[in-house]
């Protein structure tokens, strides 16, 4: 015979274990990622992130289809498939568009609502809050920088077009991961800086989307038309991460991106862009007066 049970529900004191600062940080990241994907929100909030993620995968799917439908010899001889570093040329706009959407969604919204005050009233510090938001932004951007090349790698491997042997496969996998972090971190950093300067998401997105191609136009004008030093091209935010990715894969393209800048200077410029952006965002939030 089943024993009757009384379920005593209702608000009461909590005696269980607490997860501390690490739990708060984890919760911040999970909530932020869910929020920027539109999960737990109305359908319209899911549309844009879903569309951007799908678009990032489209070239990979097309190339996989080409490789599957055409004979292997034709695919190899005609070089119908792009290299992994070349793949980013097809999706670079998609990537910085996504960064320009995610970072404002995560930072500006908290400042426009009372959420920033709620976060800072929790065990999170200003530094851990900013770090959590940066990690969330990078994780989101990685879905479009890491996902498609990984799918491309797996598909190529299944069709015997990929790296030969386990060692090469792992090396290629590592280069893809590193490349996606290089590209993702630059665009996340720029978007976070823009988002830390304004409460308005549209302004932050617009600033991000103008800054990245704008840097390319200005540096190209200075270097190509005005014959300034090619080192200025290190400030070209379209060129810098992709040039570095080419070096990661050991490719020195004769065409774009140009090979004028030494690899060390590319690494230094990347560290400077990401590091300076991180400092600006951190400093801005240390000084921010929370009024809500």
């Amino acid at each position: 015979m089943t024993q009757p049970q009384i379920f005593d529900r209702g608000y009461r004191r909590f005696e269980g274990p607490r997860t501390g600062k690490s739990g708060a940080f984890k919760s911040l990241v999970i909530y932020s990622v869910r929020s920027s994907l539109g999960l737990g929100r109305a359908a319209r909030h899911k549309l844009f992130p879903a569309a951007v993620i799908v678009f990032a995968f489209v070239p990979a799917v097309v190339f996989i289809g080409v490789a599957a439908l055409l004979p292997d010899e034709l695919v190899t001889q005609e070089e119908l498939l792009p290299t992994y570093s070349e793949y980013y040329n097809f999706v670079i706009a998609d990537i910085f568009l996504f960064a320009g959407f995610v970072a404002p969604e995560l930072l500006c919204t908290d400042r426009r609502t009372s959420m920033l005050g709620v976060y800072l009233a929790s065990p999170l510090s200003r530094t851990s809050y900013v770090l959590g938001k940066a990690v969330s932004t990078l994780l989101m951007v990685l879905t479009v920088t890491l996902g498609p090349p990984l799918l491309f790698l797996i598909a190529r491997s299944l069709q015997n077009l990929g790296p030969d042997g386990f060692g090469d496969w792992i090396a290629t996998f590592g280069r893809i991961v590193l490349s996606s972090i290089i590209i993702g971190s630059v665009y996340s950093a720029i978007a976070l800086v823009a988002s830390s300067m304004t409460d308005r998401r549209a302004v932050a997105s617009a600033a991000t989307l103008l800054t990245i191609p704008g840097s390319a136009v200005i540096t190209d004008l200075l270097v190509v038309d005005a014959n300034f030093t090619p080192h200025l091209r290190l400030l070209n935010l379209l060129y810098l991460p992709r040039a570095l990715v080419f070096r990661v894969f050991g490719e020195t393209s004769e065409g774009w991106p140009r090979a004028e800048n030494p690899t060390a200077s590319l690494w230094l410029a990347w560290i400077a862009v990401v590091g300076l952006s991180a400092f600006v965002v951190w400093f801005r939030y240390q000084r921010l007066l929370v009024r809500r």
Binding site: F14, G16, R18, T19, G20, G23, A24, S27, L28, Y31, S35, G40, R41, A42, H45, T109, R112, T113, S114, M115, V118, Y119, S122, P123, L124, R292
Partner: peptide
């Protein structure tokens, strides 16, 4: 001015998690 499109239960749960639950 709380996040308008977030459900109350999700919001309260998130704040509870932030405080270590």
């Amino acid at each position: 001015v709380l996040p308008p499109d977030v459900k109350a239960a999700d919001f309260v749960r998130h704040v509870a998690e932030l405080h270590g639950l």
